Simulated assay, not measured.
Amino acid sequence: MTEYRVEAEGIEKAFGENKVLRGVSFKVATGTATAIIGPSGSGKTTLLRTLNALDRADAGVIRVDDVQIDFATPTPKAEVRRFQSRSGFVFQGHNLFPHKTVLENITEGPVMVQKRPKEQAVAEAVELLERVGLADKRDQYPYQLSGGQQQRVGIARALALKPKVVLFDEPTSALDPELVGEVLSVIKDLAVEGWTLVIVTHEIQFARQVSSQVLFTDRGIILERGTPDEVIGNPKQDRTRQFLDRILNPL
């Protein structure tokens, strides 16, 4: 029987008159990677942000691990914090604290939010920096790093919180092309290690390689879902084929 780490049912979200999500439902099996692809403005990032309540959905139910929120009803702040603690978020633009060192950026959450001993947090941060290939950068500041290095620090910071699922919002879109590979390599390693991942990405070949499930979103709905071979290799919907052709075969 499949165990699901994330379950979303009937997610609705609007910004003013703009309905961004229209009754979205999907599941993410434990230990798998799900890639969300689709055109700009299709609701990908908003959907991802609802999984961490960075954007609060207007309606629908989301369960992440053992915490569930029904967004149609008021939710106590303590329960929202419990919900948010189940996932780590890797932002498109790094979002590192500029005045803190690499090590301080990674230990901030475990020490200040989770109240874990500083010595333990530092030891685990050093291990994470080794994992992402940045052990020699621990005392540097974000401005001293390349974009790819900053994003790898962002991944280490998310992992430091020991989340049940890691959410990636287009983690390579702000990078120079030659830096993309180093970030994707770290994410591939996490997938191989059995982390549960949800990745909004425009890197179609990467999505095909790393994910167990691909969701194609368009105009606020999931238009097509399935394995990478099904959705990317042999899409059923004309809209999916049109999108992939433009991405994979640019003029």
Rank of each mutant, 00 (worst) to 15 (best):
L145N: 02
L145A: 06
L145W: 05
S146P: 07
S146R: 05
S146W: 08
S146D: 09
S146Y: 06
G147P: 13
G147N: 13
G148M: 14
G148K: 10
Q149M: 13
Q149W: 11
Q150P: 12
Q150W: 06
Q150K: 14
Q150S: 13
R152D: 03
R152S: 09
R152L: 11
R152E: 06
V153H: 08
V153Y: 06
V153K: 10
V153Q: 07
G154M: 09
G154A: 15
I155N: 00
I155W: 01
I155S: 00
I155F: 02
A156L: 09
R157E: 04
R157V: 04
R157F: 03
R157P: 05
A158H: 03
L159N: 05
L159Q: 06
A160H: 09
L161V: 10
L161E: 05
L161W: 02
L161I: 11
L161A: 13
K162V: 01
P163S: 03
P163N: 01
K164P: 00
K164H: 08
V165W: 00
L167R: 01
L167D: 00
L167K: 01
L167P: 01
F168P: 02
F168L: 09
D169C: 13
D169K: 08
D169P: 09
D169A: 07
E170C: 08
P171C: 02
P171T: 04
P171A: 04
P171L: 04
T172K: 05
S173G: 14
S173D: 11
S173H: 12
S173I: 14
A174W: 14
A174S: 15
A174D: 13
L175Q: 01
L175N: 00
L175T: 01
D176R: 11
D176E: 14
P177L: 06
P177Q: 02
P177H: 02
P177D: 07
E178K: 15
E178H: 11
E178V: 10
L179T: 11
L179C: 14
L179I: 12
V180L: 08
V180D: 03
V180H: 08
V180G: 05
V180S: 06
V180W: 05
G181N: 12
E182R: 09
E182P: 12
E182K: 10
E182A: 14
V183P: 08
V183I: 13
L184E: 08
L184K: 12
L184V: 13
S185H: 13
S185W: 03
V186P: 02
V186G: 04
I187Q: 01
I187V: 15
K188I: 05
K188T: 08
K188S: 14
K188V: 05
K188W: 04
D189Y: 01
D189E: 11
D189W: 02
D189M: 07
L190H: 04
